[in-house]
Simulated scan of single mutants.
Amino acid sequence: VAHPLSVYIDTQGTGRVDEDKLSDVLQQLVNLSPRGIRTHLGLNRPIYARTSSYGHFGRTPEADGGFSWERTDLVDDLRGAF
């Protein structure tokens, strides 16, 4: 099955919106199939060598797409949905 059967979001009590609604909106905004995730984040390129030193969390996305999973490009769309 290409698309997820379910999506579970847990904001650990820090969320300001209903997690079920957030899950629904996220599924509408982003193609959560494996191909959709790879395409959205540009993960088919050789960008992983940089993660071998100093990790990858909290680093600013680079111009060439490195650390693309740290982008906040969906913030405005998510805010607009609520």
Rank of each mutant, 00 (worst) to 15 (best):
D76H: 07
D20L: 15
S68T: 12
L5T: 11
P61A: 06
R16H: 12
P34A: 04
D73N: 12
T39S: 12
L22T: 09
N44Y: 14
R38S: 12
V75T: 08
P34N: 06
R71I: 04
H56I: 07
H3E: 08
S53H: 15
G55Y: 04
Q12M: 13
Y48S: 11
A2C: 11
V25F: 04
S52T: 08
R59Y: 07
I9F: 08
S6W: 08
S52R: 10
Y8T: 13
D20V: 15
A81E: 00
E62C: 09
G15T: 00
R79W: 04
V25E: 07
G13I: 05
E19M: 06
F67M: 10
R45E: 15
G55A: 06
Y54G: 08
D73A: 08
L22K: 01
E70N: 10
S6G: 10
Y8I: 13
L74R: 09
F67E: 09
R50P: 01
E19N: 09
F67D: 15
T72P: 09
L22F: 05
P34K: 09
G80L: 01
G42W: 06
R38F: 08
P61M: 08
H3F: 08
D18E: 13
S53Q: 15
V25A: 07
Y48D: 11
L22I: 03
D24G: 02
N31Q: 11
S23K: 13
I9L: 14
T11V: 10
S68F: 06
H3P: 03
E62D: 13
L32S: 06
D77S: 10
L43G: 02
D76F: 04
I9V: 14
G66K: 00
I37C: 07
K21W: 12
G66E: 02
L78K: 02
L41Y: 07
T51I: 12
N44M: 15
I9Y: 03
Y8L: 14
R79P: 00
A49Q: 10
R16I: 13
V30G: 00
D76Y: 03
L29V: 07
S6I: 10
R38D: 12
Y8D: 11
N31Y: 05
L41D: 01
L5E: 14
F67T: 11
S68R: 10
L26A: 07
D10Y: 13
H3S: 08
D10M: 09
D20Y: 11
H40Q: 10
G13A: 05
R71K: 13
Y8C: 09
V25W: 07
D77M: 04
W69K: 01
D76C: 02
